[in-house]
Simulated scan of single mutants.
Amino acid sequence: MSPVLTYVLLVIVMLIWGLNVVALKLLVEAFAPVTMQAVRIFVAGVSLFIVLYFLKDLRWLNKKEWGYTLLATVFGVVGHHSFLALGLAQTSASNAALILGMLPLTTSVLAMIFLHDRMTWLRLLGICCGFIGVAFVVLQNNGGLGTISTGDLFILLAMASQAFSFILIKKVTATLSAGEMTAVMLLAGSVMLFAFSLWVEPHGLDTFSQGSWWIWLVFFASAIIATALGHVLFNMGINKIGAGQAAVFNNLVPFFALVSAFLFLGEPLLLSQIFGFIFIATGVLLGTGYVDEKLKRANLMVHSQSKPPVSIHDQIEAQGQHKAKSDSV
């Protein structure tokens, strides 16, 4: 696959994930939120296992891998998806998308704390920009600045839970493929999530009888296309162009979600959300170390080009010295 085709594929994945935020907003209004997430994640997990079976990317996990995977499941599936469902039931899809756009930056901050990643001035500036952007979003209340809503708080917790799960995933994907770990997490997490839903939503399954044909179409599209297939395609993109470049494409998800919420849900585009998106996107580029890495590579290229060329005489002399050493041995 050529780099251009990979870029197009990643843009399509980001479009799907942006639309998925709108889809989830529709689903939590049609079904009991946590129960819906449990069933949706189960369908996604089964679908991903089927894909990985044909890709021959399945094996049994060892004890250490099971430990990290199950712990990551508690935060990345149970915590993330339950908070996400509860949050979307009380806030707009636009706000949710912008807050979730902080995920790469929050993961980067946690990596500095737990994995001892290097802090730089640019990364610190990016972190500040990102949190300013979130402040524009979550403090917006009826067109002005106010207090954070319960829905936005749940989305923040959903984002933070998933970010922490990524730190755990980082520790185990050195030996386990990201695709298989995602599949195990989705399947195990759906069981945990369903058990939790029986406690918070005892009659949650009853709401499934109320869904129309088109809402079920949205449900299966969200589970199979966005969650299962989307992760497989994104992992393929990482394999082709690297995690750093692929992660930058995540900045498109809030943009696509904002536009989709405006077109399909009739949610207004607020000035505070536009400012928030600009600050968050800037913060992700700086705070995740992407700009640092680009500057470092540029400096290396400049230094390599500034070195004086080796003359033919020096080359012949170096070859003679190498031959003399070889003869002496």
Rank of each mutant, 00 (worst) to 15 (best):
A160E: 12
I132K: 01
T173K: 10
A135K: 01
F154I: 06
L176N: 00
L139G: 00
N142H: 14
T175D: 07
V172Y: 09
M159V: 15
F164N: 03
S165F: 02
S165M: 07
I167K: 05
T173R: 12
I148A: 10
T150F: 10
G133P: 03
F131Q: 02
G133F: 09
G179R: 01
G151K: 02
A158R: 11
G146F: 03
G151L: 04
G143D: 06
G130E: 04
L139P: 00
L168S: 02
L168H: 04
Q140S: 14
A135G: 10
G144E: 13
V138I: 15
M159G: 05
G151R: 04
D152P: 13
Q140F: 00
N142E: 14
T147Y: 06
L139F: 12
S149H: 07
A158S: 15
A174L: 08
F154G: 04
V172L: 05
S165Y: 06
A158Y: 10
V172G: 02
T175F: 09
M159E: 13
F154A: 05
G151H: 04
L157K: 11
F166E: 12
F164S: 01
G143P: 09
A163F: 11
D152V: 09
T173W: 05
I155L: 00
V137L: 06
F166A: 13
S161N: 01
G151S: 06
V134R: 01
F154R: 08
I167F: 06
L157Q: 10
L176G: 00
F154P: 03
G146C: 09
A174K: 13
I155Q: 02
C128S: 11
F136S: 03
V134E: 08
Q162H: 15
M159F: 11
G151C: 06
T147D: 09
F136N: 04
A135M: 08
N142T: 05
S177V: 00
A174S: 11
G130D: 05
S165W: 07
T150Y: 10
G151N: 08
L153A: 14
T175P: 05
T173S: 12
V134Q: 03
L156D: 04
G146A: 06
G144I: 07
N141E: 13
V134C: 03
G179F: 00
A163N: 08
L139Q: 01
A160F: 13
L153Y: 10
V138T: 11
A135H: 01
C128A: 14
T150E: 15
F136L: 03
F164P: 02
T150V: 15
N142D: 13
G146I: 00
A174Y: 12
G143S: 07
I167D: 13
V172C: 06
A158K: 11
I155S: 01
L176H: 02
A160I: 11
L156C: 13
T173V: 15
A163D: 09
F164K: 01
I167E: 13
N141Q: 14
T175C: 00
A178Y: 00
V134T: 12
A135Y: 07
T173H: 10
L153P: 08
